[in-house]
Every structure is written in structure tokens, then in C-alpha cells.
Write a protein that binds this DNA or RNA. Structure first.
Lengths: 135, 135
DNA sequence: TTCTTGAGTTGTAATCATTACAAGATTGGC
DNA sequence: GCCAATCTTGTAATGATTACAACTCAAGAA
């Protein structure tokens, strides 16, 4: 997706595609390592010297509201962000700190659909442990 | 469980059962609504006027290390705490803010056991939405 | 019993992510 | 081109959590 396509996509999703928002979204597209606000800010400010960290927060919160981005609160520290994709879980390695995506088996998610009388809008599956590289 | 029994249990788990720790653990036994540190502190200080909030943090972190308590980071705000029980998920109502326990179907968890080459030490399933009462 | 030592507790100060707020900039519709 | 609504920006405030150092306590040795 190029800039225009991202703009179109955001527009479709009900997000006014400002320059900053497009850049933040693009950043998430190109950086799948679950960046923090700090990560996003430090990198984007090279391109957009006037960027404010508040704008990064605002953009991300707008995205989350409109369902195009998901927030990952796998530990109690900073939030991490990821493009929204249905049905994918996160694994955090307690040694290197890296967060991996994984695709939980279909059954795991389907079983979570049914919760008597509750309306479910978001599902997160978090695993912690030690990753392949760190063992 | 009475005080002595809690003490014995903690000792078994490798936690030296101080007076404060026993009280914090007992609090979690009696308050299953996923209290915050603030909740615990505000209530326990009535019984233990010298209690420090740092002690609550210290106790909880010790418990977590020894695997007798789990931390719930379902949103980006404060941590919430719960006695450790294998295989139970948490649902947060976005309207009333309450956090419910639920028992995910056995399959959901069993499927999560297998993650090629990774050592898994903790699993959390978080759902969000609107609860029965708030719909 | 008294001493000693290590662990636990306490209070304050620091840290750090996030939000609040108000002023300035920008954009889209008329 | 103009206006109102919306975005962006920077700073200040908030609030959860940790760092740290002094103090207390419990248990074992002499």
C-alpha cells in the first residue's frame, strides 16, 4: 500500500486520513515488531520534525476506536501496537523481551465466541515464557 | 483457610509468611473481584495501620514470582491481581469496568500448549465487551 | 539472654507512560 | 477565499510503579 491507498483505507474505516495518521499507520505496516509509542515517535520524528508524541497517542487511540489497530497490554509496562488482525495471539519472551505473533488454532478462538449473554468485541490471547532463541 | 493454614501454604510455596504477606494473600482469597493495589491497600490499612503501599507491591511481586498469584494486565491502566488458578480467562466490561472470570473451554487452553520450540510459563486469555448487566 | 545477620517493612523520592488542556494550524464545504 | 470543525502541538498534570535507604523484626549462635 502506498500513501494514497492507506489514506483511502483509513477513510473507509472512518478515520480522517491526515498526514500524521497516514505515517503512523504506515509505520505499523512496516514494523511488525509491536512497537511502543516511543519507538514510533523516535523513528517518525526523523521524517516529521514537528511531530508531537501526543499526536502519536491520539492517532493510535483513534485507530483503536475504529478497529484498525489493536493495543497489546501483555505486561504492565508500556502498551504496544499492532495492526488489527482477527485471530492472532501474542507471545512474550521473558528473556529477550521480544513479542512474537502466533496463530492460535482456529478452535481456540471459536470456542471463545460463546459467552452466555455477553457481547464480545475484543479477544486477546497472551502467552509468556522463553522463546526458541533464548532457550 | 485460616491464618495458620495460609502461612503453611505460603511456606510450602517458598514464601516466608510474614504477617503482611498473609494478610495480602488472605485479602485475595476473600476478594475475588480482581482488586488493584489501591483496593488492597485502602482496605488492609484499616486492619494494619502501619501498612505501606510498597509492602503491598512487594508482597504481590513475591507471590507472582512464586506462582501463587497472577497479575492481570487486561487494560493499560493499573494491574489487577488474582489467586493463581490454571485455566481461567478474564472478561472486562467496557461499560461498568467490572472484570469477570470465565472458564475457557478446555480445548482453548489445550490448543495453546503446543508452540513449536517455545517454553510457555503463563497463559492469559482476555476478552472485552459489554457484560450481561450492561447490555 | 544478648549479638548478629539477613530478610521484611516503611516512607519518600524518582521514574515513566499516558492523558488533559489550551493555543495554534489545517482542512473541507460553502 | 472564508469559516467552522477537526487535528496537531507542547506543556503540565496525573497516577501507577519502582528505587532507595533507614528502620524493624525474627531466628540462630555464642
Amino acid at each position: 500500500m502506498n500513501t494514497d491507498q492507506i489514506g483511502g483505507f483509513l477513510h473507509e474505516k472512518g478515520v480522517k486520513p491526515s498526514f500524521q495518521r497516514i505515517k503512523v499507520y504506515e509505520y505499523l505496516m512496516n514494523n511488525k515488531e509491536h512497537p511502543t509509542v516511543e519507538n514510533i515517535y523516535r523513528d517518525l520524528i526523523k521524517e516529521i520534525p514537528t511531530l508531537s508524541k501526543t499526536t502519536v497517542y491520539n492517532s493510535l487511540n483513534t485507530f483503536i476506536e475504529k478497529g484498525v489497530v489493536q493495543a497489546i497490554s501483555i505486561d504492565g509496562n508500556e502498551m504496544r501496537y499492532d495492526l488489527y488482525e482477527r485471530r492472532h495471539g501474542h507471545f512474550k519472551c521473558e528473556v529477550c523481551g521480544r513479542i512474537y505473533d502466533f496463530l492460535p488454532p482456529k478452535e481456540a478462538y471459536e470456542e471463545l465466541e460463546a459467552l452466555e449473554g455477553f457481547l464480545i468485541t475484543d479477544r486477546q490471547i497472551y502467552l509468556k515464557g522463553v522463546c526458541k532463541n533464548c532457550r
